[in-house]
């Protein structure tokens, strides 16, 4: 039986080495059922490598990895059926029609249907869930880039996965498509209890979607926590701006409330144009990336 606090993903001391270069040094992470995790980091940090190892598409050099209770290196087809992988499409299956392809790919999941999880997802319902109903009968090569990405997502979840991997899912999405995609991911996690691991370098996306953010730079997880925790832990500095008698001032401080209080105490009514900008995830992220570049 599945429990709410069930650990779905457990990675301990994961290392990856190509020739003489270490791409991943010591990645440790853990995800529970229904949790959305964002792996945030600059290009080349090792996000894709990490996710490909967890998907069972790449063999690791060292470390312990458990995905849905199995080592991905010996993952069998039953294990594979519980996993969803959203791939970046290019021009594959161009001659297929949207509905035809989803119905076909769904057939592979029929033997893995359980009482808890009816597999596969009904093609028409799935098409509606990703907003492709109008395009269900179209040939895939005639879809726009955004429509293709939605189809990629649909292919990734056609087997009603317990764990879903998304590698930079919203690259090339317009704001509306992005918003709809975020809704879909949140619904999967909340209603289906799907655990989601996504990689992104979009800070807003990570902040909006993820229960927990892991910042990966140069092959190491340098910080982990909720958006609020990360901002508090790392950037920590709010920015206070004000003016007195037309002169502008700026001050960075960890204690913005106390600072403003002091300001009023000292200058009273003459404090004008007061503005407090809370440290943002962006500041946190930039600080972390800079630190890791200095360390290198």
């Amino acid at each position: 039986m599945t429990r709410i606090d069930e650990v779905v993903l457990e990675v301990d001391g994961l290392r990856m080495r190509y020739g003489a270069t270490d791409v991943l040094h010591d990645v440790t992470l853990r995800a529970h059922r229904g949790e959305v995790l964002a792996l945030l980091g600059p290009n080349g940090a090792g996000k894709t490598t990490t996710i490909e190892i967890l998907e069972g598409f790449r063999l690791r050099s060292a470390g312990r990895v458990q995905v849905l209770g199995m080592d991905p290196a010996d993952g069998d087809e039953r294990w594979r059926a519980r996993l969803g992988v959203v791939l970046q499409s290019w021009r594959d299956h161009g001659k297929w029609r949207v509905r035809e392809l989803l119905a076909h790919l769904g057939e592979y999941y029929v033997p893995y249907s359980t009482a808890e999880r009816q597999r596969p997802w009904d093609a028409d319902e799935l098409i509606e869930a990703v907003g492709l109903t109008e395009h269900a009968g179209k040939k895939i090569k005639t879809l726009s880039g955004g429509q293709r990405r939605r189809l990629d997502v649909a292919i990734g979840i056609v087997g009603r996965p317990e764990l879903l991997f998304l590698d930079e899912p919203t690259v090339g999405f317009d704001p509306v498509a992005r918003y709809e995609f975020h809704e879909l991911v949140q619904r999967l996690a909340a209603e289906e209890g799907t655990t989601v691991l996504l990689t992104t370098h979009d800070l807003d996306e990570a902040g909006k979607l993820a229960d927990r953010i892991l910042v990966l730079t140069a092959g190491r997880i340098v910080a982990t926590g909720t958006e609020a925790e990360l901002t508090r832990q790392i950037a920590g500095q709010d920015e206070v701006r004000w003016s007195i008698g037309g002169r502008r001032f700026t001050e960075s401080t960890e204690e913005s409330t106390a600072f403003v209080r002091g300001l009023f105490h000292q200058y009273g009514e003459s404090v004008a144009e007061l503005e407090v900008r809370r440290a943002s995830l962006e500041d946190t992220y930039l600080t972390l990336v800079r630190q890791s570049e200095v360390a290198r």
Binding site: E55, H93, L105, P111
Partner: peptide, 20 residues
């Protein structure tokens, strides 16, 4: 061609997809 355009990878990501 199927390897180049990712058709094969899709098959790999699906249970028994390679056999199919």
């Amino acid at each position: 061609a199927d390897r180049e355009d990712g058709t094969l990878l899709r098959a790999k990501a699906i249970p028994n997809g390679m056999v199919g």
